[in-house]
Amino acid sequence: MSVALDITLCALVLGVGWATVAGHGVFRAVIFFITYGLLLAIVWARLGAYDVALAEAAISAGLTGVLLLAAHGRLRRLNASQEVPLHLNLPAAVVAVGIAAGLGWAWFALPAPTAPDLSQALPQSGVGNPVTAVLLNFRAWDTLLESVILLAALLGLWMLARDHAWDKPLGLPYHARPGGVLASFGRVLPPIGLIFGVYLVWAGADTTGGAFQGGTVLAAVCLVTIMAGVLHAPRVEQAAWRAALVLGPGVFVLSGIAGAVFAQGFLALPPALAKPAIVTIEAALTVSIAVTLVLLVIGPPDEGEQDA
């Protein structure tokens, strides 16, 4: 029964994945991609990797999907969304099949699995969710750099603004109809979303969740309120928003240095203090992740096309 379910699921994932590549029209490819991410999240749940499932659904399907949809809308207005007719590209197909076959072969050639023994380390990590323990303690350096990558992407995106638009609010001018569905949605959703997002971060210490998943939910809430016109898109020169961007990575680096000064070394967390330290770092990271994601979605300062 479960094998039949897995076979169906994999067939669906492959079929939808195929549609993103071979289907006609870029818009449909984007829609198929979002569906694909949601199906893949189910696959991750089947594997028992619930943290990954949540990240896949929220970040890959959700945020990447929103980014692609927004970009498609923009390209359509710029008359750049059309695609030349697609045809079979045989050399590309040969390369693709070769790489897939190589990976498939490697699966059967893998030696017996060897995973590092975490049984001694986990009780020292301060958290009950082993994935959170890896992300915020054992491999905290990866996670710190990952939060900086989000920042670098945002800086890069801002560099794409036109010079004369630099002091304008971020993103395209957006107007919601007062009293419309979106405007009332924008007032009702935030409290609920806020609670869910904070819950995900808090729960991430011991069960499924975490700063990136929680930050994504908070970002979604913030985006809805901006689109509803309840909250105004900021400008680059607004210091509070820029401070929010660097709060998480900054707290992370400083706590790492504190580990070097007061504990066994850079990024070290003494077992007794590990839990509060991780919760503090995650709280700060969540704020920065949420703000960075919001600003990544709304894009660089822009006045639209009318003056181009």
Binding site: T64, P116, L135, G210
Partner: peptide, 22 residues
């Protein structure tokens, strides 16, 4: 389920989002 790959995958998903955004 080895938690280290799961953590690496979550990191990888965030990295992919950042690159896609730019």
């Amino acid at each position: 389920l080895d938690p280290i790959p799961q953590a690496l995958i979550i990191t990888g998903i965030v990295v992919a989002l950042s690159a896609s955004a730019l």
